[in-house]
């Protein structure tokens, strides 16, 4: 005998069972890839990072270093630097050129794994798991070009709205600065200084000054480099660093970056990586990277550039 109420009650029971099961499915705790990291505390020489400031360096400008306006020598002259590649030559008539840049700021260190973890924790950005798996103070790798830009956008936003942002940095941003990737000219000036040196420390390769011909990355800032311009670290080796310049032949002209849209997309990477020999970690060397590439030897560094 079937009671009249049994049909709707059974249906209701089944619906509830499925609902509960699916709700449970949707609310299972997700495994956290991000260990709780606080501060890298290596007293002495090693850089310190601030757990309460998105793991940025403990520094008045949170790791941004001013590169003052002025000229620098861009490109390579093969008669001075025999290791130069043709792509580094400015034009058929001039091997190098003096280029003027306005004041900008660039990160003292490459962006670290800990900083990327902060970003992902704050935003849920869908990043490659390998980008989060390295040691916290090592440079972030397995980062695509859009990933690097996404991090820059987030940091720009957070630095603008946070009450914890140092006043000097807030002023910079309010004055038209924008956290982004450096252009390749900005990167090259930061790496080579104004005197056109081949490596950040001078004109001869020095394995004690940078991580190259190595088996893996080292913690950012782990090499002392008193000769390096602007006090920047790892401008040679460790990881290739994305720039916001499309990979196209010199002469360099930032105003044509939005042209040649039909060309295959490649973006300039600078600095070489731990896997590379001396020739690739020279300050003028130019690498072209597929924007979707996520590799163990590709990372980035951020800059504050004047808004275009």
């Amino acid at each position: 005998m079937i009671r009249k109420t049994s049909v709707p009650l059974t249906a209701l029971g089944l619906v509830s069972a499925v609902w509960i099961a699916l709700s449970f499915a949707g609310s299972l705790p997700q495994p956290s890839l991000i260990p709780d990291h606080t501060v890298i505390s290596n007293p002495g020489e090693a850089p310190r990072f601030l757990a309460d400031a998105w793991q940025l360096p403990d520094d008045p400008l949170l790791g941004f270093v001013e590169i003052t306006a002025g000229p620098f020598l861009m490109g390579s002259d093969a008669t001075i630097d025999p290791m130069a590649f043709d792509i580094e030559r400015w034009s058929s008539t001039n091997a190098q050129v003096v280029l003027e840049l306005p004041t900008y700021y660039i990160g003292r260190f490459e962006v670290t794994v800990a900083q990327i973890r902060s970003f992902v924790q704050a935003t849920g950005y869908p990043i490659d798991g390998q980008a989060l798996s390295g040691a916290p103070e090592h440079p972030a790798s397995f980062i695509s070009w859009p990933d690097a830009l996404a991090y820059s956008r987030w940091l720009d936003k957070i630095l603008r709205i946070s009450a914890d942002t140092p006043e000097a940095l807030s002023t910079l941003l309010e004055g038209g600065g924008q956290v982004t990737l450096p252009t390749e000219a900005e990167w090259e000036k930061a790496a080579r200084g104004t005197d056109g040196r081949i490596y950040p420390w001078g004109s001869e390769p020095r394995p004690d000054r940078a991580t190259y011909r190595a088996r893996g990355t080292t913690a950012v800032g782990s090499h002392q480099c008193p000769e390096c311009p602007f006090g920047l670290s790892d401008m040679a080796g460790n990881v290739w660093e994305w720039t916001r310049s499309p990979y196209q032949p010199y002469p360099y002209d930032p105003t044509d970056d939005s042209e040649n849209l039909e060309n295959e997309s490649l973006w300039v990477m600078r600095g070489g990586s731990f896997t590379d020999p001396e020739r690739f970690v020279r300050g003028a060397n130019r690498g072209g990277g597929d924007p979707g590439a996520r590799r163990a030897f590709i990372g980035f560094r951020i800059a504050i550039s004047p808004s275009e």
């Binding site: 695509s144 070009w145 859009p146 830009l149 982004t180 916001r244 499309p246 970056d257 939005s258 040649n260 849209l261 039909e262 060309n263 295959e264 997309s265 490649l266 973006w267 597929d290 924007p291 979707g292």
Partner: peptide, 15 residues
């Protein structure tokens, strides 16, 4: 689109 090597999309990310 940019990761699929479509240059206009990369430019759109910057601008």
């Amino acid at each position: 689109a940019c990761e699929l090597r479509f240059q206009p999309a990369c430019v759109n990310l910057l601008d």
